[in-house]
Simulated assay, not measured.
Amino acid sequence: MNKISFKKVALVLAFASTLLSCNKEDLVIDEISEPGKYENGFFVINEGWAFTGTGSISFFDYESGTLKDSVFQKENPDSDGFLPKSSTVQFGAKFNNNIYVVSKARGPVVVADAKTLKEVGRIPGSASYDWRAFVGLDENRGLLSSSNGVHVIDLKNLNVLSKLSGVSGQTGDMLKAGKYIYVLNQSAGAVIYNAEDFSVVKRIAGVTLGFAQTPNKKVWYTKDKFLYSSNPQTLETDSVELPFKPATTWGTWFSSPIIASTKNNTVYLLQAQNYGGGKAMYKYIEGDKSSLNQAFITTPAKQSFYKKNLGYNPQTNQIVTTTVQDGFGENYLVNNIYFYNAESGELIKQIPYSGYYFPSMFVFH
């Protein structure tokens, strides 16, 4: 037996001796859980080709470096998936240990385990509701925005409990920040609620895109030609002028193409039209107006963004984007996913893939 083996044996004996000398109540051993099948990567929420097929979820696997399609359907072959075909999958968010996937056009809200992607519940599609986005509040409650205001959801039983007062009509993105909930409404702009009693605290007319939150807790949104920050403690605001006027996303609703880094106080947003698309992404480093002097990332020739085709990956400090080929019809078969350094904008990797996916946004762990 060599020296290394003796050392290993000594360590084992020492550990065993420690165990034997410990009182049972003093002994704590942390449980080591196996990583889930869908933890080592991120999700792409695909709108799908309305009336032809349903939306889907793709998964980018870090280990294989590949994009795997229709992973929810494959993990749940007996599920109704995202039917009906007339609806489109438009929004996804991770909350606690689940992913909430929201369809508009009277489609379902599907809840899946974030590690396994096995379905754990749903709000079936219904003519009574036309959903937009989801935000979790606590263990028991969440909010779903819709074509007619915001609804409180029982997360345990997936029931619609009530409708918030103070906002009506088409309502989209939402963000819970501290003691407030920021809600984006087509006619009212930003409506800020008290998270405890759902009373309206403040209204900001004319808001076009929102919301993103930087590490300093500030909440970001756009209005006219300006990017605003809101302090979620005092609700005081500050602003910087943008080199373009952001459009709204109400035409064929999609989540606002504005995100934030989790590492730096930096905001990224797309220069897009009301229906989506666009070819330029801008980056604003708080306090540095010159960071807006030129686009941070532009799409390659003959390629455009589609909806909220930008995401910040907190695990890799990268910006991830998807594009479709310019034009209509079969051009939508041509997709690419890109990975950029979030600090420099340097392109790290490009992966082409084919199919009528119509990617709408990303969900990261």
Rank of each mutant, 00 (worst) to 15 (best):
K7P: 00
L11T: 09
A16F: 15
A16I: 15
A16D: 07
T18Y: 14
D26A: 14
V28A: 11
I45S: 02
I57L: 12
D78Y: 08
D80S: 13
T88S: 11
V102W: 10
K104H: 13
P108C: 08
A114W: 00
T116M: 04
F134Y: 10
D138I: 00
E139N: 13
L144R: 06
N148V: 13
I153N: 03
L155V: 02
L155C: 04
L158G: 03
L161I: 15
S162A: 12
S168T: 14
A188E: 15
G189D: 05
A190M: 07
V191K: 01
V191E: 00
Y193R: 05
D197G: 02
A205W: 08
A212K: 08
Q213N: 04
N216P: 05
K217H: 10
T222F: 09
K223C: 06
D224M: 06
Y228V: 00
L242C: 04
T249Q: 11
T252W: 15
S255N: 15
S256G: 08
N264A: 13
L269W: 01
Q273H: 11
N274T: 14
A280K: 15
Y284S: 03
Y284W: 13
D288G: 03
S290Y: 06
T299E: 04
P300K: 07
K308N: 15
T322L: 11
G327W: 07
N341Q: 10
E343M: 08
E343G: 04
E343I: 09
Q350A: 09
Y357M: 00
F362S: 02
F364N: 00
H365P: 12
